[in-house]
């Protein structure tokens, strides 16, 4: 359980600051190494400057079974261009030192954290690099103890995920072990922007809030203003946007202006619209 690590507390503070400013937190996602290492550094800074409260940096993986086509392709392209775990860690370090006030999370898969690199080495590197923690898409808390142990010693948080299919008992388990926030996967599916966006969020968010005082952020499928507003209306404390931003970068990942514009647009939507009188 990594809630009380320095990383976990930094993340919770970021959510608290957003709340104090009258909006939900904006958590964008950038793929390390896509379209290039240097460009992904610029995109990370751009997203933070556009108003992100917390930033997720995805570590490309060979077998991303929780990811849809957009993130699969971006990750494949980055790996083909020679992306490595070390380059990803270096990116995190650069971004963290350039923008010290915003917590950074890496997102990856179990074998990157529990595999040949060694859990201890990964935890150490992330902590030294200034990361706040990690989200591991195929690591449920049932298997999380070894990683939690190493992360706790290095002051890093593990953000766990809940899904609409999770039972109340599982939500209690997951929320109880999560650090930083609880990641609410909005739908049964993989990552990827969808037209209709997240639906029936209120019930899931309420179930998580019953189980924990941690901030709740909703992700998967968010791509438009209306979606962000729906997340805000559901009672969640933050919204996570991934594939939509990668899509905005276009076919070869170079359309930075579109990326920027989408960031700003979505950030703006995190503030509730003033009610206008009908009369």
């Amino acid at each position: 359980m990594t809630r009380n690590t320095s990383g976990g507390r930094r993340i919770e503070s970021a959510f608290a600051r957003a709340r104090a400013a009258g909006r939900i937190a904006f958590v964008p996602y950038v793929v390390a190494g896509h379209p290039s290492l240097e460009r992904s550094y610029e995109l990370a800074l751009g997203a933070l400057d556009a108003g992100a409260d917390v930033l997720e940096i995805g570590l490309p993986y060979s077998d991303p079974l929780a990811d849809g086509v957009t993130l699969q392709r971006a990750g494949d392209a980055a790996l083909a261009a020679g992306m490595t775990l070390d380059a990803g860690f270096a990116l995190v370090e650069r971004v963290a030192s350039a923008r010290t006030d915003k917590p950074l999370l890496v997102m990856g898969y179990a074998n990157q954290f529990l595999g040949p690199r060694g859990t201890e080495a990964v935890a150490q590197r992330l902590a030294e690099g200034g990361a706040a923690g990690a989200i591991v898409a195929d690591l449920p808390p049932d298997e999380g103890a070894p990683l939690e142990e190493a992360f706790t010693r290095h002051g890093l948080a593990i953000v766990y995920l809940v899904a609409p299919t999770s039972s109340d008992a599982r939500i209690e388990l997951i929320a109880g072990r999560s650090g930083g926030f609880v990641y609410c996967v909005s739908l049964a599916g993989v990552t990827g922007a969808r037209g209709e966006g997240p639906m029936n969020l209120g019930a899931l968010v309420a179930r998580v809030k019953k189980a924990s005082t941690l901030p709740v952020a909703v992700g998967f499928g968010v791509s438009r203003r209306e979606h962000v507003r729906a997340v805000a209306a559901s009672g969640a404390d933050g919204v996570i946007v991934g594939s939509a931003l990668v899509d905005a970068l276009g076919q070869d990942g170079r359309e930075v202006e579109r990326f920027d514009a989408l960031c700003r647009e979505l950030v703006a939507a995190t503030t509730p619209v003033e009610a206008t009188s009908a009369a």
Binding site: A66, L139, A163, T165, S167, R170
Partner: peptide
């Protein structure tokens, strides 16, 4: 062994 899967699959596995 164990179960290293996204949470969406946990309920199906259980």
């Amino acid at each position: 062994g164990g179960r290293f899967v996204p949470e969406t699959l946990m309920s199906a596995l259980l």
